[in-house]
């Protein structure tokens, strides 16, 4: 059996384990309504993966500008697309949690505002891509915008929620640097983060290969 097949099988078992642990291994946390605290195992990893994807997109964009290799452009575009997808998932899981805890899906909490803007930025990235017909110019302009967008991310993720009062539960690495979670929570959360990261790497590589094939076919047609 090839290594990649073993890795895929391992990822399947791992994610099943994470899902099982999220519902059976940990107890509902105090201070949260009903079972709502369990969503942390899915909400935090999707948010983490979306930031990771945007980091990959930024790094690939810088590499594209240095080498002008179209492969890096494909990587940047694919990572942004996945980042957008995971940001939507983080928004939706966050909204579900908000409905249970604060009785409203959406209340313009600073965290919700910043993720909404993040979604807008990357939607704008694709608007730019579709507005430049020449592939090389499209790649270069999109790379510049991806870097500009990534510079804005820290302000949205770290500065805006710090300046404004937020209902959002403390992030894991909070101001005190202490870990308020029960140790079982930490174990499952770390496992889930690892699983989601693996999932991202896998989808990313499939998507990159698909995009390359798509591009080659396009060139053949032309």
């Amino acid at each position: 059996m090839k290594f990649s097949n073993i890795a895929k099988f391992f990822l399947l078992v791992w994610m099943l384990g994470v899902i099982w642990a999220a519902f059976y291994y940990v107890q509902p946390a105090e201070g949260f309504i009903g079972q709502s605290s369990r969503i942390v195992f899915f909400h935090v990893p999707t948010a983490w993966v979306s930031v990771l994807a945007f980091l990959v997109s930024c790094v690939s964009s810088i590499q594209y500008l240095r080498t002008r290799d179209p492969e890096h452009d494909i990587r940047a575009a694919v990572a942004s697309r996945l980042g957008l997808l995971f940001a939507v998932l983080a928004t939706v899981t966050g909204a579900i949690f908000a409905r249970i805890m604060w009785n409203a899906y959406w209340n313009w909490d600073p965290r919700q505002t910043s993720i909404a803007i993040l979604l807008l930025i990357y939607a704008a990235y694709f608007a730019l891509r579709s507005a430049v017909p020449d592939p090389e110019r499209r790649a270069a302009l999109a790379a510049v915008y991806a870097i500009l967008a990534f510079v804005t991310v820290p302000f949205l993720v770290f500065v805006v929620p710090r300046i404004y009062w937020s209902l959002h539960p403390d992030t894991i690495i909070n101001v005190r640097g202490a870990n308020d979670f029960d140790s079982r929570y930490t174990q499952v959360l770390l496992a889930s983060l690892a699983g989601f990261t693996g999932l991202f790497v896998w989808i990313n590589s499939i998507d990159c290969r698909l995009d390359k094939i798509r591009r080659r076919r396009q060139e053949e047609v032309l």
Partner: peptide
């Protein structure tokens, strides 16, 4: 910088607002 980008693309007027607004939002806040 966004004006420099959109000047090299098509549908410039609409694109300028689309690309600028999300970057400007934290600033405006």
């Amino acid at each position: 910088i966004v004006a420099a980008i959109i000047a090299r693309a098509m549908t410039r007027g609409a694109l300028f607002a689309v690309l600028s607004l999300p970057l400007l939002l934290p600033l405006v806040i």
